[in-house]
Design a binder for these strands. Sequence first.
DNA 1: AGCGGGACCTGTGGGC
DNA 2: TGCCCACAGGTCCCGC
Length: 313
Amino acid sequence: MPELPEVETIARTLAPQIEGRVITAVHILNPGSLAAGHDLLPLLTGARIERAHRRAKLLLVSARARSEELLLVFHLKMTGSFFVHPAGTEPLTHTRLIFDLEGGAEARTAPGNDKEIGTTTGKARTSQPDAARSTAPDAGQRLFFDDTRKFGWCRILRPADLAAWDFWAGLGPEPLEASVEDLARHLGGVFRGKSRAVKAALLDQTVVAGIGNIYADESLFKAGIAPQCPCGGISEKKLLALAGAVQSVLGQSIRECGSSIRDYRDARGNAGAFQNNFAVYGRKGQTCQACGRALKDCRVAGRSTVYCPTCQK
DNA sequence: AGCGGGACCTGTGGGC
DNA sequence: TGCCCACAGGTCCCGC
């Protein structure tokens, strides 16, 4: 469920809490959650975190270890989340990795200092212990990587490892970093002559990065394209509509701090609000906002899919 | 080439 | 009330 907007929101809320801090220890509570880079753990201890940002659905944390740079690459899959707790906080039920941090960062976990990404509307709330929100500026902290279903992972990599990593190298373009016309042209090029269902292509991270089940369904509805429609049969006009829909849906979701179905929280424990805007996702059997007829569900590329048979052709 | 299905996980919720 | 089972989801991998 953390797709592009959720990971972006997590990166924006996490960065001010950890940038500049030094990693003093790493605790691996679930060995499967550290997918690569065990050999770099000794180097990571003592490294200073420089930056936390997003690419596709990956959260990247760069750290300076003596003379070289290391990267912590996280995939949150469905249930991964981050939260910064005060030093001494015990692991929670689903805590998989803990990074002990010390010094450097300003105290930005205090209440009332959450303004940099705008305020979430609707049912935003915290689900974390109050103690985590009143940490003293220079006290040590613990970055928790929690992951209920253990699908998520962290890789510790050198920049060269990242460049050589097939998954990374194969990622498609960032959908929000191109003009609508360029994105439409890119999709048109990839789609040309293909019989593959358009939704399957949108979910393919090598086609375009960051889209998951929620935003694929929402974008296709907004563009008026049926999810089963073969890629190659989409007109240029519809491609432009699809590119515009992808950008508008992702952009609006980022502005609303992502979608919280049940698990997702940002790095301050706040829920997103974009789920209140869903036109189709999770609305099987309910009425279409545009035509008033019932929304249908089906499976495309093995994923549950909801669409309007009238509005999407 | 691209799809289906299984595997990886666990909490939730519907049905009985 | 309690049990069972389907389901959710991203990615990889295997087989067709």
